[in-house]
Simulated assay, not measured.
Amino acid sequence: MEFLGLKQRVAQVRGEIADAVARGGHGQAVRLIAVTKTHGPEAVLAAAAAGITDVGENKVQEALSKQEALTAAGTMPHGLTWHLIGHLQTNKVKALPSFGLFHAMDRAKLADEAAAMAAKRGITLDVLLQVNIVGEETKGGHALSEVPAEAERLHGMPSLRVRGVMTMAPFDAPEAVLRQVFRGAREARELLRAAGHDAHELSMGMSGDYLIAVEEGATMVRLGTVLFGARGG
């Protein structure tokens, strides 16, 4: 089977995360989000069977197609939370109610569109503010200096609940840069909290850097390759 041994890998990763929490000294609980992009619905079922209750997708349509397939087959795992972790075009905000948490609120216009959609439907969306600590041109997100003003602006959008911060570190960055990025995200979360938001989450860390992220206080890590192996597509 493609996902043979996943339970053992999950147990190993959870143990490594616990050790990283102890090293970091932040004492936080850490949610493991299984990123199933480019894998089929069977990856979601395998993750759930391995005790994972959170799955993440980068692309809206891929996520919705898996949700539809699992629902149609009557195999949608009970108690599963879906996370949308990738960049979202403003014309796709109508899909956000299909997710328990949206990680990539990376620009003011997207927040405006999401808030308007949610208000019109009479719902509240849980979101994370995406920050771009070192100013990578290839990634979206708010600069740390922009966070206080955006935090105040978001107070005028009661249909959005800002739960914390998400960031991505540069690929293959040295440890010093990784720690700079993750500490910056932690600072951004504190700015949100100082502005009155119920912001406790730090979504940071992927397969190549998640243990450093946990040492720096991550409450959510987004893991694909370390769980499922290298992907195609």
Rank of each mutant, 00 (worst) to 15 (best):
R153G: 14
S65L: 11
A48M: 03
T38C: 12
G25Y: 11
T219K: 02
V165K: 07
K59R: 15
M76N: 05
R161W: 01
S145Y: 06
T138N: 12
A169R: 11
A199K: 09
A29T: 13
G5W: 05
L192A: 00
A116K: 14
H103K: 05
R23V: 08
L192R: 05
P41T: 07
L70T: 13
A50I: 08
E68L: 12
G140M: 02
A72M: 03
L191R: 04
A111M: 14
R186G: 15
P97Y: 13
S203D: 12
M76R: 15
K109M: 09
R107T: 09
P41M: 13
L192T: 10
R179H: 11
M220P: 00
E187I: 11
A11Y: 11
T90G: 07
L160T: 15
V13G: 02
E175L: 06
A63C: 08
T124I: 06
A46D: 02
L160R: 12
Q28H: 09
K109F: 04
N91V: 00
T71P: 03
L101P: 00
G100Y: 12
S65P: 00
I85E: 01
D126S: 15
V44I: 06
N91Y: 01
H155N: 12
G100L: 07
S203G: 15
A29I: 07
H26V: 03
Q28W: 06
H200A: 13
A50F: 13
F228W: 07
A116P: 05
M105F: 04
R231M: 02
H200N: 14
A194F: 06
G164D: 07
P170N: 13
A114Q: 04
G156T: 14
E216D: 09
L160H: 07
G86D: 09
R23H: 08
L129I: 10
R23K: 10
D209T: 09
I85C: 11
Q67N: 04
G141M: 09
I123R: 14
A169G: 09
T75K: 15
L191Y: 02
P97S: 07
M1W: 08
L32C: 07
Q67C: 00
E215K: 03
G184T: 14
R193V: 11
A114F: 08
M206W: 04
R189S: 02
E2M: 15
E113V: 11
V131G: 05
V93W: 04
D54K: 00
A95C: 10
L80F: 05
S159C: 01
W82G: 01
L128Y: 11
L191P: 00
K66G: 06
